[in-house]
Lab assay of single mutants.
Amino acid sequence: KEQQNAFYEILHLPNLTEEQRNGFIQSLKDDPSVSKEILAEAKKLNDAQA
């Protein structure tokens, strides 16, 4: 469930490039146990690119 939530949120971050988004999603698939950390990174990058 946590992985699904992170997946959904990353898909809807407006400021990520397609490449960045795909990278985060691939990381989620590779290691779902760190989905919280991956989501935090994605949000940080999204904010930095706002």
Rank of each mutant, 00 (worst) to 15 (best):
A40D: 14
L28E: 01
K44W: 08
D47K: 11
Q20P: 00
A40N: 13
S33D: 14
Y8C: 02
Y8G: 08
N22S: 12
L39Q: 06
N22D: 11
E37S: 08
S33M: 13
N5G: 08
A48L: 15
N46E: 03
E18S: 10
H12D: 11
T17R: 07
D47P: 01
I25T: 07
T17S: 04
N22V: 12
I10D: 01
N15H: 14
A50V: 12
E9T: 05
I10K: 01
R21P: 00
S27M: 08
P32S: 04
D47A: 10
A42N: 00
S35T: 15
Q3M: 05
P14F: 08
K36R: 12
E2C: 03
V34H: 05
L45K: 04
E37P: 06
L28V: 11
I38P: 00
A6C: 05
L28K: 00
E18L: 08
K36L: 13
H12N: 10
A40T: 07
K43E: 08
K29F: 09
D47C: 05
Q20A: 04
L13R: 01
A50K: 04
P32C: 04
V34M: 07
R21I: 10
L45C: 13
D30M: 12
N5L: 10
F7W: 15
I25W: 02
P32R: 06
K29I: 12
N15A: 07
Q3F: 15
E9R: 05
E41D: 09
P32Y: 07
D31Q: 13
E19M: 11
L28P: 00
T17N: 09
A50S: 14
T17P: 01
D31H: 13
N15T: 05
D47L: 09
A50I: 14
Q3D: 15
E18W: 10
N5Y: 14
L45D: 02
A42F: 00
S35E: 08
H12S: 07
E9Y: 15
Q49G: 10
P14Y: 12
R21M: 08
A48R: 15
E19S: 08
S27T: 14
L13P: 00
L45T: 08
K1M: 15
A6Q: 07
F24K: 01
G23I: 11
L16I: 09
K29V: 09
S33V: 06
N46K: 01
S35G: 03
